[in-house]
Amino acid sequence: MDLIYLGFKQAFIMIFKGDRLVFEIALRSLIVSGTAVAISMIIGISLGLTIALARFPGRRVLLSLVNTGMGLPPTAVGLFVALLLARRGLFGFAELLYTKQAMIVAQTVIATPIVAGLTVAAVQNLNPKLRLQSLALGATRAQMLWTLIKEAKLPMLAAVMAGFGGVISEVGAVMMVGGNVTGDTQVLTTAVVEYVGKGNFPVAIALSLILLTLIFLVNFVLTQVQQRETSSWPKRISK
């Protein structure tokens, strides 16, 4: 009991005094996961729009693959990315294993299907007449796409947030490809594992609290988006 009480007390002191070690690790987590999500946003939204709007052979197979990918086990992704980036691996020449770039690659692989899958769902949930209507009103293809994106932007924002929440709390992949190198590739999740290993519970608790706060923020925004969606029905009909 003492351990827990003292741990939390010291953790709060560290957070509110702006402990350098704790914030450097938190910052690194944000940078790595933020970059990974930014990249997967570009790939995932384009892929999602293509699957939702275009009709081409193999589309259903691709969609099934994306849906499977939404539940990719991070540890497996970590293993394969690590094998590819290892010195004797296919991309060994780049010497990327145990770097932040490697972690970004792994997290992008994890987040992209999530963003793509949720984008497909978001666009397909739009009224199908919207597309025809905008074309009928003389919109070009690009203008029609833009209208659809604008209509689905909130669910798509939710998709991006879900991707971010998924990768920032993930530990298996970043541990394997990043190696948890102190001051270089150590992020919130791997640092918690290490500091528990060192028996340093206050730092571990402080890092966990920051992680929880980040996840809460993500879900707070997600909830706002979802609530707005349902409450805005009458407004949209009156449009």
Partner: peptide
């Protein structure tokens, strides 16, 4: 609400 969410993301 929408603006709040968007600006938060931004």
């Amino acid at each position: 609400m929408k603006n709040l969410a968007l600006s938060l993301l931004a």
